[in-house]
Computed example of a mutant assay.
Amino acid sequence: MTDVSPPFYPFEGKAPAVHDTAWVAPTAAVIGDVTIGAGSNVWYHCVLRGDTNFIRIGAGTNIQDGTIIHVNRAAEATIIGDHVTVGHAAIIHACTLEDFAFVGMGATVLDGAVMEEGALLAAGSVLPPRKRMGKYEFWVGNPAKFVRVLGEEERARFGKTAPHYVELAGRHRATLAG
């Protein structure tokens, strides 16, 4: 059987801490001071590099395929809350994504930026350094600009993504375990 263990790498004495119920794909790389919470999942070909600062990921969060998460050596770590969705091939750099935030595919969130609870950054958009998206706000573009506040129906629909990925991660874990 092929080794399907995810590659965890210590850096300067700090090793990743991954909750027993989290799932990290075997082709992901998790490096240094990275904490991944209960039920969270990190998909194929992601790189989470906590070398010059730390990365914290809460519970039930999904980091989809090809995403890069890094930090800033100054005072900016990367903090990702609970039940956050980070779409495929996103770049998350030295910023804060609060609970239930949603980062679209190929989007970028830069140093010091904050996405408050339930904020939605559209696919391919770039949230510039130190910008703050308010609670349940929808932003789009490069640079990203405020469009509107999401309605309850939209929030409910986007809120189904993170639990879906928790369930799907369990299926991947079981399949890879053989």
Results as ranks from 00 to 15, higher is better:
H88F: 06
E117M: 13
H83G: 07
V42S: 15
G106E: 08
G87Q: 10
I31W: 00
V86Q: 12
W139K: 10
H45Y: 14
G118Q: 05
P26C: 11
R73E: 13
N62K: 10
I92Q: 11
P26F: 14
F100G: 05
M105T: 02
A122K: 03
I79W: 04
T85N: 03
V126D: 03
G66R: 00
G134Y: 05
P26Y: 14
T78D: 08
G106W: 07
H70I: 01
A94C: 00
I31M: 12
D99M: 08
R132H: 03
T108N: 10
G37S: 12
E137M: 01
C95I: 09
D33Q: 05
F54H: 15
A38E: 15
A89H: 15
T96S: 13
T67Q: 10
A113N: 06
D82Y: 00
H88E: 13
H83S: 14
M115S: 10
G134P: 03
K131T: 09
Y44E: 13
F54T: 10
V24I: 13
G112P: 08
G32P: 05
I57W: 11
K131A: 14
I79K: 07
I68K: 11
A75G: 14
I80P: 02
V109L: 12
Y44L: 07
V109C: 13
Y136D: 12
D51I: 05
T78E: 06
A119N: 00
